[in-house]
Design a protein around this nucleic acid. Structure first.
Length: 586
RNA sequence: GCGCCCGUAGCUCAGCUGGAUAGAGCACUCGCCUUCUAAGCGAGUGGUCGCAGGUUCAAGUCCUGCCGGGCGCGCCA
């Protein structure tokens, strides 16, 4: 149950009643009546609605006038104990404790389904993320997009969308040819030949050595006899396969899984989807032969004008038209993306997401142009950008340089701090803000470390339930965890605060899904954990507030039911983030 | 030069469909352990929400301009 939507329904019903009583104009549109909000100041009650303010103009009445009528109507609702008009025309609502107790029962009855919604209406969504080139291991820079894309995917799934997670493999083009050449050198090396330095432009990484060794084992000296392009093709495929397997393993350790791995090379196998896409664009008069203008910031003498096949992306707001074929006639990388998006559109999703790294922002206008052109502007296509991750150790930047081979491998980080910490920390910022990721801090077991703080709250819940069962003889734990017990003893303001926090989850999920902001889940969980820790510690100063009161089984039952509901919400919230909710911390 | 993003407390950042007195953590000051985990909790100090206009009953939030910072910008991938 989403209590905010629930109360909105009550408000609309009250307004309809006023309309039929002739107290409000019968033709008054209630579309501007929003979801009630939680007031900033708790003294203002549990929820506030600005309905009177929003309607007064259309109703031709003073805001206070509308508010007074509406408040009187709402006060008659048995769940509402107080409906007061305040300020310019807000109505502050206070609910009976039984209203909140019902929510707790609902949480436990629906369990993991609490917080889920039908917001997405079963619409299909395709999310492309990671798509790291299979030319080497994953490094820390890839991991933010991986975690963000994965969390966004499960968030949307939670909010009622049907989600496909997709990875685009760049296994065609010049870079993978260079990869093949590099692997061939490592193969020669494995056969005992002296290869010297890896030439500039090729991949010098150590990770190609085992690939070369495997090739040497499989082919012996036979590869050397084959023609150049054939042996490079063999080495290329071997390197791609191995690298991709490594990438999948790295992603698996991070808890990231894709439904579809789409090969760039496959675009022109069987059917030539690049050609088909270009033909389709050509029919729309968006393809032409021409020369690109010299971009600003380039000297005239280093600029050579060339005639080539271009896509008219300027018709869609891009800075310049984009090349589809190189001067030698082969496709550009962009042409591959044209074919790929053509294929995606053909598969027919309601929404498309393409999670990109900060270094790809310049690429966005042409992607949007292609999708818009191919779908006649009909496709819903978004390209969330993940900003850079700055890796620190104890406040000091960890130097990263591909050339020096000192980039931070994703696997090393996951091995060092664990999947949960990496995932949670990557979601503690909006995707378009840069992140500082401190390897030391995420291992701290303290309040400074939000991962720990939230997991600790969950562990405390588990501990309280366990002890309750052991220490309170008459306690029926099944009654507690199913929410079937008597909750009337839950009336302390601190307890009701925690319940109100729990009540926010469904709305939070919908808002986060609507705005594609998984980071809101982490903030929510932090706040929820904070409310729980607060209540727990109230028991230090005021023993009568402790969850477990051996001499009062009824009270214990009610309080532990609240604990069980808290545990449930933390657990399913962490589930959206792909972070484990442990029953105890070591 | 152009495009995108960011600018909120000393620092790092939240702020949801515009709503009442702008929030959290860190840092700083003070208080709390014979306790269901003090691996924590409470209180206090601290802000012209970059600047200037505009829309609105109401702007940190929407619009315009400017200032400052980040990223990107030919057939690379």
């Amino acid at each position: 149950m989403n209590v905010f939507a629930h109360v909105q329904g009550r408000i609309v019903a009250a307004l309809e009643a006023l309309k039929s009583e002739g107290k409000l104009p019968a033709d008054l549109s209630l579309a501007s009546v929003g979801v009630p909000d939680e007031p900033r100041d708790p003294k203002h009650g549990d929820m506030a609605t600005n309905a009177a303010l929003a309607l007064s103009k259309a109703a031709g009445m003073k805001p206070r006038e509308v508010a007074d009528m509406l408040a009187a109507k709402l006060a008659a609702d048995p769940e509402i104990t107080k409906a007061e008009v305040a300020g310019p025309g807000f109505i502050n609502l206070t609910f009976a404790p039984s209203f909140w107790h019902g929510l707790i029962r609902d949480v436990l009855a629906t369990a993991d389904a609490y917080g889920r919604s039908q917001f997405g209406g079963g619409e299909t969504v395709d999310i492309e993320y990671v798509s790291a080139n299979p030319t080497g291991p994953m490094h820390i820079g890839h991991c933010r997009g991986a975690v963000f894309g994965d969390a966004l995917a499960s968030l949307l799934a939670h909010a009622g969308y049907k989600v496909t997670r997709e990875y685009y493999i760049n296994d065609a083009g010049a870079q993978v040819d260079k990869l093949g050449q590099s692997a061939y050198l490592r193969y020669l090396e494995a056969l005992g030949e002296s290869i010297g330095e890896i030439p500039p432009g090729l991949y010098p990484g150590e990770y190609l050595k085992p690939i070369g060794a495997a090739l040497a084992k499989k082919y012996g000296h036979a590869l050397k006899q084959k023609p150049d392009d054939e042996r490079v093709a063999i080495c290329r495929q071997a390197a791609i396969d191995t690298n991709l397997a490594e990438i999948k393993e790295d992603l698996g350790q991070l808890g990231v899984h894709h439904d579809v791995f789409f090969s760039e090379a496959s675009l022109t196998k069987g059917r030539d989807r690049i050609g088909e896409a270009i033909a389709k664009l050509k029919a729309k008069d968006l393809i032409f032969q021409g020369a690109l203008p010299r971009p600003k910031g380039h000297d005239e003498d280093e600029w050579e004008e060339r005639e080539q096949t271009l896509f008219r992306s300027t018709a869609f707001g891009d800075d310049m038209d984009r090349a589809l074929q190189k001067s030698d006639g082969s496709y550009t990388y962009f042409a591959g993306d044209v074919g790929y998006h053509y294929d995606k559109l053909e598969r027919g999703f309601a929404h498309y997401f393409n999670v990109l790294g900060a270094d790809h922002v310049g690429y966005i206008p042409r992607l949007k142009a292609v999708v818009s052109a191919l779908s006649d502007g009909k496709a819903s296509y978004a390209t969330p950008v993940c900003q850079l991750v700055k890796v620190l150790r104890d406040g000091q930047p960890v130097m990263m340089s591909k050339r020096a081979g000192t980039f931070v491998a994703l696997r090393d980080v996951v091995d060092e701090v664990g999947k949960d910490a990496v995932r949670f920390m990557m979601l503690t910022r909006k995707n378009d803000s840069p992140i500082d990721f401190d390897l030391k801090k995420v291992l701290e077991q303290s309040k400074d470390n939000p991962v720990f703080y939230v997991q600790y709250a969950h562990a405390r819940c588990a501990s309280a339930l366990k002890r309750g069962q052991a220490e309170v003889p008459g306690l029926d734990i099944a009654k507690v965890t199913s929410g079937k017990g008597d909750l009337s003893a839950l009336d302390d303001p601190a307890e009701l605060d925690l319940i109100r926090q729990i009540a926010k989850m469904p709305r939070m999920i919908e808002g986060a899904a609507r705005d594609r902001e998984p980071h809101r889940v982490t903030y929510y969980l932090y706040d929820l954990a904070s409310s729980f820790h607060q209540l727990w510690n109230r028991g230090n100063d005021s023993p009568h507030l402790r969850f477990i009161r051996a001499e009062e089984p009824g009270l214990t039952e009610a309080r532990l039911t609240l604990v069980a509901a808290t545990k449930q919400v933390i657990s399913s919230g962490l589930g959206v983030l792909g972070v484990h909710a442990p029953d105890e911390l070591r």
